[in-house]
Simulated assay, not measured.
Amino acid sequence: MLDFIAIDFENANNAKSSACSLGIAVVEKGVITDIKHWYIKPHPFEMGYYQQRVHKIPLESLTLAPAFDELWPAVLPFLEGKTILAHNAAYDLNLLRGLFEHYHLSIQSLQYACTVDMARATWPNEPKHSLGYLAYYNQLTFTHHRADDDARVCAQLALRMADLHEAEDVDDLIYRTKVSKRNFDGTYATLKPRPRTRQQTPLIPNLHAEINVTHPFYGKSVVFTGDLTGLGRTEAQQLVWQCGGIAAKNLSYTTHYMVVGKQNAQLVGEELMSSKMKKAEELLSRGFPLVILNEEEFLAML
Results as ranks from 00 to 15, higher is better:
residue 268 V to L: 09
residue 31 V to Q: 13
residue 143 T to D: 11
residue 264 N to I: 03
residue 155 A to C: 02
residue 30 G to M: 02
residue 53 R to Q: 10
residue 97 R to C: 10
residue 293 L to V: 06
residue 86 A to N: 04
residue 293 L to N: 07
residue 87 H to E: 07
residue 266 Q to L: 14
residue 88 N to I: 01
residue 174 I to P: 03
residue 301 M to Q: 12
residue 301 M to C: 13
residue 267 L to P: 01
residue 302 L to H: 09
residue 71 L to S: 08
residue 209 A to N: 13
residue 254 T to Q: 15
residue 265 A to D: 07
residue 59 L to M: 08
residue 266 Q to G: 15
residue 277 M to D: 00
residue 181 K to D: 00
residue 3 D to S: 13
residue 253 Y to Q: 14
residue 258 M to H: 05
residue 33 T to E: 12
residue 252 S to P: 04
residue 157 L to K: 13
residue 283 L to V: 03
residue 126 E to H: 14
residue 281 E to W: 06
residue 211 I to K: 15
residue 174 I to D: 03
residue 250 N to H: 12
residue 24 I to Y: 13
residue 250 N to P: 00
residue 44 P to S: 06
residue 257 Y to V: 02
residue 152 R to T: 10
residue 257 Y to A: 11
residue 37 H to E: 09
residue 123 W to A: 11
residue 99 L to E: 10
residue 275 S to R: 13
residue 87 H to M: 06
residue 90 A to C: 03
residue 6 A to P: 10
residue 162 A to V: 00
residue 213 V to W: 12
residue 209 A to W: 10
residue 182 R to W: 01
residue 177 T to P: 12
residue 161 M to T: 04
residue 173 L to R: 12
residue 158 A to M: 06
residue 138 N to V: 00
residue 25 A to T: 00
residue 159 L to E: 00
residue 92 D to S: 05
residue 210 E to G: 05
residue 142 F to M: 08
residue 36 K to E: 07
residue 257 Y to T: 03
residue 66 P to T: 01
residue 248 A to H: 04
residue 114 C to V: 05
residue 185 D to H: 09
residue 168 E to T: 05
residue 284 L to N: 02
residue 153 V to H: 02
residue 211 I to T: 14
residue 36 K to S: 06
residue 288 F to H: 14
residue 19 A to L: 01
residue 296 E to F: 03
residue 187 T to K: 15
residue 257 Y to E: 02
residue 146 R to G: 00
residue 75 V to W: 07
residue 15 A to E: 05
residue 51 Q to S: 14
residue 299 L to E: 04
residue 115 T to V: 09
residue 58 P to W: 07
residue 122 T to I: 00
residue 78 F to I: 00
residue 78 F to C: 07
residue 28 E to P: 02
residue 280 A to Q: 08
residue 302 L to Q: 10
residue 107 I to H: 09
residue 72 W to S: 09
residue 250 N to C: 04
residue 154 C to K: 06
residue 178 K to F: 11
residue 13 N to S: 07
residue 76 L to D: 00
residue 206 N to D: 14
residue 242 Q to Y: 06
residue 162 A to T: 00
residue 216 P to W: 03
residue 144 H to Q: 15
residue 247 A to I: 07
residue 217 F to K: 10
residue 168 E to P: 01
residue 41 K to V: 03
residue 83 T to Y: 09
residue 51 Q to T: 09
residue 278 K to W: 09
residue 290 L to E: 08
residue 33 T to K: 15
residue 58 P to N: 08
residue 13 N to A: 03
residue 249 K to I: 00
residue 211 I to N: 10
residue 11 N to H: 05
residue 139 Q to R: 14
residue 18 S to H: 09
residue 263 Q to I: 06
residue 229 T to Y: 05
residue 56 K to T: 03
residue 256 H to F: 00
residue 164 L to G: 12
residue 234 T to V: 11
residue 81 G to D: 01
residue 102 H to F: 15
residue 254 T to H: 08
